[in-house]
C-alpha cells in the first residue's frame, strides 16, 4: 500500500518535555487518529511534520518527498487545521477567499462558497463576530477548498456541537470515498475516531504507546472484570494494565478471545478508546 506520510524517529527536546522517537506511517486513502492526553505530544508531532517547530531529529516524508527540501510541492497538497484559531479576526470569509486564491494553485472559490453555504457561514461577516464553532468550521472549509490530498488536522472538531461534528466527519468521509485523500487527525473526541479512523496512534509523554488499526483495537482488546482471586491467578504477561474498583478488578487485555479461553472469566467487555486511554495512563501493572 502506498504511504502518504512517513514519520521516522522524530525526536524533539524541550526543558520539561521530549518527543521520543515517534514513528508511524499513514497509508494512502486512510485516516489515522492521534490520541493522548493534553501535553502528550500530539500537537508537537503535527507541528514538526508541518515544520512549524524546528531543531528536531528524525525524518518526515510526505508523498515520498522530504518535507523540507520539497516543501512547496508538498504544501500545495496539504490541508491544515491547527488546534488554535488562526485567522486574524478582522478578516471576513470573503477576505480569506481573496487571499487564498493567490496562495494555493488549486484554490477553488466555488467550492469554498459552497461549503460556506453548507455550514451557514456568512461570507461578509468579520471573523470576530463568529462563534468559536463557526470559526472552526471556517478553518475546515478553508482546508478543504484547495483539493488537498492530505489533511493534517489538530483537534478540528473541538468546539463544534454534535450536529456540526457529524457534518464535518461526513464531509471528510465522503472525500475519502471520492478522492482518495488521507487524513492525520488529532482529537480528544475518541468516539469520532472510533467512527472514522482506520488507524489509531496513541501518544503518551512523548512516546508512542501503540499504533494499530482501529478494528484490531476495538475488536481484539477488551476489559475483563474479575474478582480479587481471579485477578491474582492472571499472569502479568496476559494483560496490559489493571484498575482496582470498589468491588472488583478491571483488566485491560490485548486479545480478549485468547484471554477468555485461557481464564474462566465470564465477562470480557468490548473496550472504547476512552477506556483504553484511561487504562494505559491511569492503570497499574503487577
Amino acid at each position: 500500500m502506498e504511504t502518504v506520510l512517513e514519520v521516522k524517529d522524530l525526536c524533539k527536546k524541550y526543558d520539561h518535555f521530549a518527543l521520543d522517537h515517534i514513528s508511524f506511517q499513514l497509508p494512502k486513502g486512510m485516516i489515522m487518529g492521534l490520541i493522548g492526553e493534553n501535553g502528550a505530544g500530539k500537537t508537537t508531532t503535527i507541528k514538526a511534520i508541518l515544520d512549524i517547530i524546528q531543531s528536531y531529529q528524525g525524518e518526515v516524508k510526505i508523498f515520498g518527498l522530504h518535507h523540507q527540501k520539497e516543501e512547496q510541492q508538498i504544501k500545495e497538497k496539504i490541508g491544515v487545521v491547527l488546534d488554535e484559531m488562526f485567522f486574524p479576526e478582522i478578516l471576513t470569509p470573503n477576505d480569506i477567499d481573496f487571499s487564498m486564491k493567490d496562495i494555493y494553485k488549486n484554490w477553488d472559490t466555488k467550492l469554498f462558497y459552497d461549503y460556506l453555504k453548507t455550514f451557514s457561514i456568512l461570507p461578509n461577516k468579520p471573523i470576530k463576530t463568529l462563534s468559536k464553532g463557526m470559526r472552526k468550521k471556517l478553518e475546515i472549509v478553508t482546508a478543504l477548498a484547495h483539493h488537498p490530498q492530505l489533511f493534517i488536522l489538530d483537534e478540528p472538531t473541538s468546539g463544534l456541537d454534535p450536529v456540526a461534528r457529524a457534518e464535518v466527519l461526513e464531509i471528510f468521509q465522503n472525500l475519502l470515498d471520492k478522492e482518495e485523500c488521507s487524513i492525520l487527525l488529532s482529537s480528544h473526541m475518541t468516539t469520532d475516531l472510533e467512527q472514522i479512523a482506520d488507524y489509531i496512534t496513541f501518544i503518551h509523554q512523548g512516546k508512542i504507546l501503540l499504533s494499530k488499526t482501529t478494528t484490531e483495537l476495538l475488536d481484539q482488546y477488551g476489559i475483563a472484570k474479575c474478582t480479587k482471586e481471579e485477578f491474582q491467578n492472571i499472569q502479568p504477561t496476559d494483560y496490559l494494565q489493571y484498575k482496582k474498583t470498589k468491588y472488583a478488578y478491571e483488566v485491560l487485555v490485548e486479545n480478549k478471545k485468547a484471554f477468555k479461553e485461557k481464564y474462566a472469566i465470564a465477562v470480557v467487555d468490548k473496550m472504547t478508546l476512552d477506556e483504553l486511554m484511561l487504562f494505559m495512563i491511569k492503570g497499574e501493572k503487577k
Partner: peptide
C-alpha cells in the same frame, strides 16, 4: 498593527503550512 493581529490570532504558525510560507 497587523503584526498584533497576526500574533494574537496565531497566524504565523498557520502561515508556515503554506507553500514557502
Amino acid at each position: 498593527s497587523t503584526f498584533s493581529y497576526d500574533s494574537y490570532n496565531h497566524w504565523d504558525a498557520y502561515v508556515v503550512s503554506f507553500p514557502h510560507g
